[in-house]
């Protein structure tokens, strides 16, 4: 992807501004890595997991009437995983130590997400992705995007699985999320299009 060096610059800048950042991955909403600066992390596995989580998060914000997906924050005992929307096609996932300044993490994450979003959206608008179909045409709101994300997400999971079998943790998470995520998209999304129009 042509915008990749610029995205990578953005990720490196983030690392300089946030010392407690241990990894940054920019990925398409379909789970494909666009650029990464995450030593010691398997970026393909991470972005595939991000796509899975994202699909659930998008449905969650829609089901509860919170509008378009903006960000997602997960805290473990040893640190945070934060995912920020980056335009219409991408997301930015950041891994940090536990003692990070979350206020600053949000400020930097949102800013970087917006910039990466501009880069990716400009690229996508210029070249499009015929293989992936049109992503979320303007005017129609998030529904197609969500459905598509869910579809891509299952595709991403299937392709990600053979790539990441050595990590039992990861495949465990993937199979876990598969069950609740499968039946959901058809119902709330379908029901909503009916009432919206």
């Amino acid at each position: 992807m042509a915008a990749e060096p610029e995205i990578l610059d953005e990720l490196r800048r983030l690392r300089a501004r946030l010392p407690q950042l241990t990894g940054a991955v920019a990925a398409g909403r379909d789970g494909l890595v666009l650029a990464q600066d995450a030593p010691g992390v398997e970026p393909d596995g991470l972005s595939a997991l991000t796509a899975t989580t994202l699909a659930v998060a998008i449905r969650m914000t829609e089901a509860t009437g919170r509008g378009e997906f903006r960000e997602l924050l997960i805290r473990g005992a040893d640190g945070y995983v934060a995912t920020y929307a980056a335009g219409r096609h991408a997301v930015l996932t950041l891994l940090t130590q536990d003692r990070v300044n979350v206020g600053r993490l949000h400020l930097e994450g949102r800013r970087a997400g917006a910039r990466i979003g501009e880069l990716v959206d400009a690229h996508e608008d210029a070249h499009g992705r015929t293989a992936h179909g049109k992503a979320a045409p303007d005017g129609t709101d998030r529904e197609p995007a969500a459905r598509e994300a869910a579809a891509h997400d299952t595709a991403a999971r299937d392709t990600a699985r053979p790539a990441a079998p050595p990590n039992p943790n990861q495949s465990h998470h993937q199979t876990q999320t598969q069950d609740p995520s499968r039946p959901l998209p058809t119902r709330p999304v379908g029901a909503r299009t009916g009432t919206d129009n």
């Binding site: 300044n101 979350v102 206020g103 600053r104 993490l105 949000h106 400020l107």
Partner: peptide
């Protein structure tokens, strides 16, 4: 965490959430 529990004043030219994060450092 660097996050503000509450803010007042500041206005558009002075973002108190930015100040909260920065002064945490």
């Amino acid at each position: 965490s660097g996050m503000a529990l509450g803010t007042i004043g500041g206005g558009k030219s002075f973002d108190l959430n930015v100040a909260a994060a920065g002064n945490t450092d």
